[in-house]
Design a protein around this nucleic acid. Sequence first.
DNA 1: AATACTTTAGTTAAAAAATTAAAAAGATTT
DNA 2: AAATCTTTTTAATTTTTTAACTAAAGTATT
Lengths: 408, 408
Amino acid sequence: MNFPPVKYSSDSDMNLVEQKNNSQKRKIIKHLFLYGAMANTDLGRFVKLSTPKIISLLNELKNEGMIEELGQGSSSGGRRPNLYGNKEDAFYIVGISINIYQTSVAIFNAKNQKITGDHILPLTITHGNSIVDPIVQFTENIIQEKQIARDKIWGIGIEMPGLVDSETGINKTYMVSKRPVAEVFRKKFGMEVLIENDAKTRAFAELRFGAAQSKRNVLTVHLDWGIGLGIIVNGKLYKGRDGFAGEFGHLPMVDNGILCNCGKTGCLETIASGTAIVRMAKEGLKEKRSSLLGQLVDNDPEKIEIRSVVQAANMGDQFSISMLANVGQWLGKGMAYLIQIFNPESIILGGQISEASQFILPPIQQAIHIFCNPELGNEIEIKVSELGSQAGIQGVAALLLERVLDKK
Amino acid sequence: MNFPPVKYSSDSDMNLVEQKNNSQKRKIIKHLFLYGAMANTDLGRFVKLSTPKIISLLNELKNEGMIEELGQGSSSGGRRPNLYGNKEDAFYIVGISINIYQTSVAIFNAKNQKITGDHILPLTITHGNSIVDPIVQFTENIIQEKQIARDKIWGIGIEMPGLVDSETGINKTYMVSKRPVAEVFRKKFGMEVLIENDAKTRAFAELRFGAAQSKRNVLTVHLDWGIGLGIIVNGKLYKGRDGFAGEFGHLPMVDNGILCNCGKTGCLETIASGTAIVRMAKEGLKEKRSSLLGQLVDNDPEKIEIRSVVQAANMGDQFSISMLANVGQWLGKGMAYLIQIFNPESIILGGQISEASQFILPPIQQAIHIFCNPELGNEIEIKVSELGSQAGIQGVAALLLERVLDKK
DNA sequence: AATACTTTAGTTAAAAAATTAAAAAGATTT
DNA sequence: AAATCTTTTTAATTTTTTAACTAAAGTATT
């Protein structure tokens, strides 16, 4: 099956010039998608071509309906440059974020603008692929609602938790079936589909749109129900042999610790994840520990969620604060490992628990000082992501587009 | 100061065509250095240029004395191709390996052939830069002996232990002085000098000449007096923000452990390095533990070296074998961390302790099974480096050449 | 074993493409 | 309003590719 943009493919049966032209056009489209309108000179710096050549490529793209002129930019004393940008309706991409308890869908246009509202489907992820059909149906409805021609959708990017191999399209942890999930989706949608692990898509979002934009070596730690690690090295997202790199949450931290759902004991996730916090909070409540948490959940331990603990802590609840501090200490020790191994420029924290940064950052810093060589640990920048809740969807969508455009 | 090969630099005051030509020529030289003689078609696949263009570049290089024709290659049914290769005396590079107790020097020609014998200078590395002058002298003698024109030496690569930042040319651990060591060497030699940490140069050697050649994600663990980690991700050597990535030996492994020379306690190096083994062996001998080790060192504990323990183990000595097995367990646990973080294709072991692989590989494998997610740990390939003792020198030399040729 | 066929490599000249350099156009500053 | 600065356009020149052709070597056929 052939998916768009076949237009700009560079098959080996093409001649060298066509191949190079198409590769350059793809670069231009990608650049305009990511960085918005731009003057020919700036594009020239990027693709390393002379002005006449770039202008001719831009004109071709204009005639093909891909890009448009967008008036003139500013000048510091000279003729103003023409600005070029992708045409909004040149193509669309779909981003789907499958979380543990819900799935969100959004559509982006060729200017990387989200053209849909918040579409959230409450759906608990399972080991099997029972949630595939509801997600496909939900997404198709949104596409139809927006009346987008199917051939203008260049693909669908799906982020999900678990051990995801985006090459084979297999998730080893969730949505397991005979055929790779990505293939199942691809068949049902009839479009290019990319699946990727959520920690990696968020790292990619930081790299393209967030705090890692101008950096080369950054780690992102996703603190939610689980603990995920995104690795950016030499300015690229790192995935490892099978795409499983970043299993930070399953580093063995405690001897004879609690059993983890991975089958081992004492993993970092058993003591420093959202799941662990909720478990500890429930135990505390059952043991009648005095805490503001009780009020927040009507004294029903089963109602406790991550946000309950964060909320209680923000209200000054001692029990919640000390839990978070303890979590911070363990995270800090784990991050000390990462810092010594990666010597990163910065570490970016995301996920629900990062919203309690005032309680976890100090113990993290402290643990880093204790366990880290000062040459590596002292100057490290640790901060909370500034990307909102849409980071994941934006990340997969952009990742999908780049894969489509990088494909020869 | 201008160093060779200014000939092929691509300054921004050149026109685009010249810049591209020179960049292509540099690529060709690098390729021929690394992979030996080659046909024009093969080079074409690599630099993506048409046959006439490549032939014209090759002819220019031939006229400039850089390359030569080397007869004809084989064909599977057709005219035989002309082979092109770097001329031996087109340029030379010098590799220097500074170890804890000795320094080795070698010179390589443009075909990456070592043209010197074994030149080893016994010299103990210090915190200050007292060994700089002896090394410069020693190296200059070798250069003079070989009667190589100075302008034909494109640079000197120096590998050394410690926290090395090759960008600034500073080693934070050894050879510390007011000015960066690399600059001190550069001044004295009057040539381009690159310094790099030894674990990284060995990783690079594996990437270019060893078991990592055809792989993209590989870790190399250098087991010697210390424990070094070389990281190859996405087919490139990873160095981190300051070049300090890979401080694997200083991961905190034991609570309330022994004091490490890094200032922290319980580092992996305090229990699983060559230094640790020798320390334990000395203690054992002093406590009159019966062991073959005693015979090997005339019952003088101070004479014990890494190789004594390896040798004793190979002779069947129970004490030495159990020490190595213990070391293997700790290394295995540490490697389980690395595997879960990097999901590498393989891990390559080097250094003196890797010579006792029969005793350390089984406990390493066992620990990996215990501490690692089976999806990541089961298929991992762990093997001992096949590169000999010259790996480090070869690695820095090649690294230096690539840096010289990659510079615009 | 001779011959024709196939495959691969290298050469050449025509055609195409890209760059350079110069001129024109448009905007800002003095 | 002149001078300056920057971008765009244009035309000439240079470079590169394409494609046809020659060359050389192996393979198959007679």
